[in-house]
Simulated assay, not measured.
Amino acid sequence: MKVRQDAWSEENDLLLAETVLRHVREGSTQLKAFEEVGDTLNRTAAACGFRWNAVIRQQYEKALGLARKQRKQHLRNGQKKERSSGLHVISENNPVDRDTIEIPSSNTLTMREIIAFLQNINTSEADYESLRRELETVKQEKTAIETKYEELEKRALTMQQDYEDLVRIMDRARKMVVLGDGAAQKPSMQLESNKDLEIAE
Rank of each mutant, 00 (worst) to 15 (best):
L131R: 04
Y128G: 05
M170K: 08
E92F: 07
S188T: 08
D13R: 09
D196N: 15
E129N: 11
D181G: 02
K62R: 14
I115W: 00
E192N: 13
D6C: 14
Q58R: 09
I56P: 11
I199K: 01
G86Y: 04
H88E: 06
M176E: 08
D196Y: 01
E134C: 07
S130L: 07
D162E: 12
M111V: 15
W8T: 02
L14S: 14
A63Y: 02
S188R: 04
A200K: 14
V20E: 00
R68M: 14
D39R: 12
I103Q: 14
H88I: 13
I114H: 00
L15D: 07
L14G: 05
I103C: 13
C48W: 03
R68D: 05
D39Y: 05
L66T: 15
V177M: 01
E36R: 12
A33P: 05
V3C: 08
Y163M: 01
S85T: 08
I145Q: 11
F34C: 04
A183E: 09
Q160H: 10
I199Q: 06
V177G: 03
K195R: 10
K69P: 00
K154V: 04
E151W: 04
A46I: 04
E146A: 11
R68Y: 13
A200Q: 13
V96S: 01
I56W: 02
A63I: 09
L197V: 07
Q161E: 05
V167G: 00
G27H: 07
S130D: 02
A156L: 05
D97V: 06
L135N: 11
S106A: 14
R71P: 03
K195M: 06
I101D: 13
A144E: 15
T108V: 15
V55Q: 08
G65S: 13
R155H: 05
I114R: 01
R4P: 02
A63D: 15
Q5L: 11
D162N: 09
K81M: 03
I90Q: 09
R43T: 05
A33T: 00
Q185I: 15
E61Y: 11
V3S: 13
Y128K: 11
A67T: 05
E151R: 09
E146G: 05
P104C: 13
